[in-house]
Amino acid sequence: MQVITKITRQKNRDRYNIYVNEKFAFSVDESILIKFGLTKGKILDSFEIDEIAYEDEISKAFNKALNYLSYQMRSEYEIKKKLLDAGFGESVALEAIQKLKRLGFLNDETYSKALLETKKRTAKKGPMAIKQDLLKKGIDQNILEKTLETYTFEEQLRLARQLAEKTVKMNPKKTPAQIKQKIRDLLLRKGYSFEITNEILDQIDLERDDDEWHDLISVQGEKVWNKYAGKYKDKQLELKVKQALYQKGFPLEIIERFIDEKRENE
């Protein structure tokens, strides 16, 4: 016969040590103590002890997950991985997760919406990039698609335009073609579609007047000229410079004017 002969509280914790037949048998969380009515003099059989141990593991897993959630929102996948990595069995982890869901501490739909808003606000990410973020968090496909449906075309255009305008401001010494390539690369990398990217490129104003073209080619043209001057001479040098500057987006008349000025200054 196994009889509880003593119950003591652990220091600074809501856990209790249970003594059976005058010997320490196991410890439990306060909630388990109450649930099973563990009191001095209670008789336990082996089945009850096993059940108590299992419930206490769930309680430990629940508390660990709750602590993990206290720092920031998490997905079910993240919580399960955390508990498994901590050494809890899969059945215990799943039971703890179900308890978290019942109490409203864990909800993948709410988490997905919050992640979507965060990625839009902090990184101005497009839907394809956010989709990858959600997949990494183990979000169910149906929840994922439902969440991304709330990301409207108009909102994508607004955020993509902000990225494009910032790129223009950061590259005052680049040609329109170079800036467009930077915008295209950035928007695609951020997860925007070709449709959104092309729409933004059509909207953005990158016109340059003659003075601006002159300033641009004075900087980039000199670099290209110096790069090839040690390798080529005369017409071959001019051809190489012309090809390089044309690829950078300079108009032919601007390039030819630059080359004429170089000839005059030699």
Rank of each mutant, 00 (worst) to 15 (best):
V3N: 07
V3R: 12
T8Y: 05
Q10P: 03
D14Q: 13
D14P: 09
R15Y: 02
R15T: 06
R15H: 02
F24T: 07
F26W: 08
S27M: 09
V28R: 06
S31T: 15
I32F: 06
I32P: 02
L33E: 01
K42D: 01
I43C: 12
D45Y: 09
F47R: 15
E48N: 06
E51T: 15
A53I: 15
A53M: 15
E55C: 14
D56Y: 06
I58G: 07
A61K: 06
A65D: 07
A65P: 09
K80H: 10
K81M: 10
D85A: 14
V92K: 10
A93W: 06
K101E: 13
L106Q: 01
D108K: 04
T110N: 13
Y111S: 09
L115Q: 10
T118E: 14
K120G: 02
K120S: 03
T122H: 07
T122V: 05
A123Y: 10
A123C: 09
P127W: 00
D133F: 06
L135G: 01
K136W: 05
G138K: 08
I139M: 11
I143Y: 02
E145G: 10
T147M: 04
E149V: 14
Y151Q: 11
Q156L: 04
R158A: 10
R158K: 13
V168W: 11
T175M: 03
Q181N: 15
L188G: 01
L188H: 01
S193L: 09
S193T: 13
E195H: 10
E195L: 13
E199R: 13
E199G: 13
L201E: 08
D205F: 07
E212G: 04
E212D: 10
H214C: 04
W225C: 02
N226V: 00
N226K: 01
Y232I: 04
Y232E: 06
K233L: 11
E238T: 03
K240L: 02
Y246E: 11
Q247D: 15
Q247Y: 12
P251Q: 04
E253A: 05
E256R: 11
F258S: 00
D260Q: 12
E261L: 05
K262E: 03
R263C: 04
E266G: 12
